[in-house]
Design a protein around this nucleic acid. Sequence first.
DNA 1: CTGAAAGCGCTTACAG
DNA 2: CTGAAAGCGCTTACAG
Lengths: 349, 349
Amino acid sequence: MSRGKKSSVTIRDVARKANVSVATVSRYINGTARVSDEVAKRLDRVMEELNYVPHSTARRLATKKTNTIGLLLTDMSGDFFAPLLRGIESMAREKGYDLLISSAREAYSQVRNLPLGPHNCDGILVFTTSLDDGCLQALSEMSFPVVLIHRSTPPELNIPCVTVENKAASYKLVSHLIEEHERQRIVFLRGPKGHEDSYWREMGYKQALLDHGIPLDESLISFGEFFRRKAYQSMWELLSGGVQFDGVFAGDDEAAVGVLVALREAGVRVPEEVSVVGFDDQRMSPYLQPPLTTVRAPTEDVGKEAVRQLVKLIQIGEADPLTLLPTEIVLRRSCGCEFGSGSPLYETW
Amino acid sequence: MSRGKKSSVTIRDVARKANVSVATVSRYINGTARVSDEVAKRLDRVMEELNYVPHSTARRLATKKTNTIGLLLTDMSGDFFAPLLRGIESMAREKGYDLLISSAREAYSQVRNLPLGPHNCDGILVFTTSLDDGCLQALSEMSFPVVLIHRSTPPELNIPCVTVENKAASYKLVSHLIEEHERQRIVFLRGPKGHEDSYWREMGYKQALLDHGIPLDESLISFGEFFRRKAYQSMWELLSGGVQFDGVFAGDDEAAVGVLVALREAGVRVPEEVSVVGFDDQRMSPYLQPPLTTVRAPTEDVGKEAVRQLVKLIQIGEADPLTLLPTEIVLRRSCGCEFGSGSPLYETW
DNA sequence: CTGAAAGCGCTTACAG
DNA sequence: CTGAAAGCGCTTACAG
């Protein structure tokens, strides 16, 4: 229980004991210049004996590099978060960077107050809206490396971004409803205002209608906010407003839950009368009644790719402006497709 | 797109511009001594003008503190992870610490290779088995602050630990099966070998049997490994071995999924013939067929409490040896309880 | 291949 | 209340 100092063997100690200068030790450790074999051996031995670990803070101060990347998030609930972080963490480790993470309820607007920035990272990953445009601009002006995840760069700023194919997947999903299940009046529930993913999903929805010669009916577009209750409410409004529809693209799986509940309460059968589809393939989605047709995004890969781009940006000063990862449709019963097994339990083994 | 240096205004710059010494600036910033009002004002203005941000690396080197805590994990899948991290992150921020995280496939055994340690943190949080006993001992010997999460301290080591009440909850759960649903032959599926949580759940199971005068039958204890497939296999072995049972405590919710599938395939009705209960209350659990009776742990609080203890350890050199957070039983239909609503969709709103 | 020395940007006794 | 100066543990021109 004693609080003694952490042992601190310094580079000086090993230099002395190995009878060389600290410069030599430093060079040997960093492989920054050759040393004679004899010295190398001696150093290996001495470092082993002394159990020497270079002091990373001192190294940072001397090199002006932190070897750390930061991740800035708005919130860490949702199934989304774990795989994303897993991807980020594994790639960061692979690239030799420490990972600092910070979550903020609201977007930061003052660069000076950022928990993550030039003072403790070599670059940061910004997830969705965790940083406002002003901050991005300020960081950009000081040439601080930033990569955006699931959010595109503000105009004129040229910040690299990595995200997934929302539009193409939505297009396929809605086309599926039209072509396979003969749906014509498909509701779309928007996500939160300003949410990139939602925007592109809406574009995919509209494009699919257009390409199938179905006129866009604004009364079929409502708000789900990627949130169960809101989607539930919106469905009731549509229902009691007498709006006719035979399909619902809920925007995401969370909203789809609200849709399913509302329809069940209203006595509308899914998928017989109305097809319902979501987006994200959350862990609960195979277990919903009926199992939810949705879209799966390669979230872990998004994380990895984001780190890869950030490291490029840090090390060579440039990265790909946009990385779009492919998504895949997951067909289950809520759209009207039939499956033999019946048990969604199997699926996730 | 230029790569220019990050602007770096130093304490020296503000000192010069404000016509004081760097020592004064430092003291003012850290509130470590009073300065005259006049100087204070000048400093505020100058720092604002220069957009000065103290260089945390330099500060670290000078103070020998990193103001960072580390989190070491084995894996980051599972519903468990997000709330835990949320708790940790929020409390770390509240306490003024940066959070570094690192995940390892296997436990580290060499202190020198640790991604997180005295070189980059003031203390670390160790989740379950991410560090072996040898490492813990080494860290302990150098008085490096460590707090364990969901893992108790190795003998003689006295490392503070925070976890949840596994035994009491299991006891209540099994007692519920016995008392309310008249179950007598209850299977228990163990988690991974050496897993603390599993151990205590087993103790709760055994104690409940004992207190209700039900003799322990070893043939009812098998392996679920907190893993669907394994639990599924084990159930089939019991089933085809002709073992009679009327209840299953699956060890956790993952295993419960395997149990439900096996029983369904075998034509055994749940809960009429066999009650099934899990542990953890995963997000999918309300949606299982039937909805799963289980136990909910305050995972976010575990994270917060762990940080609180670690910070105490860092700052005043001591912490509570054991923090046990209470768990709560969540009754649904898989145990045999009846509920009006029927729709599990409501529950998680 | 190796050393002496300056410097990274702070903090903190020590002295006033 | 304020300053001059040493020191935190490294890295890296510069010189040999």
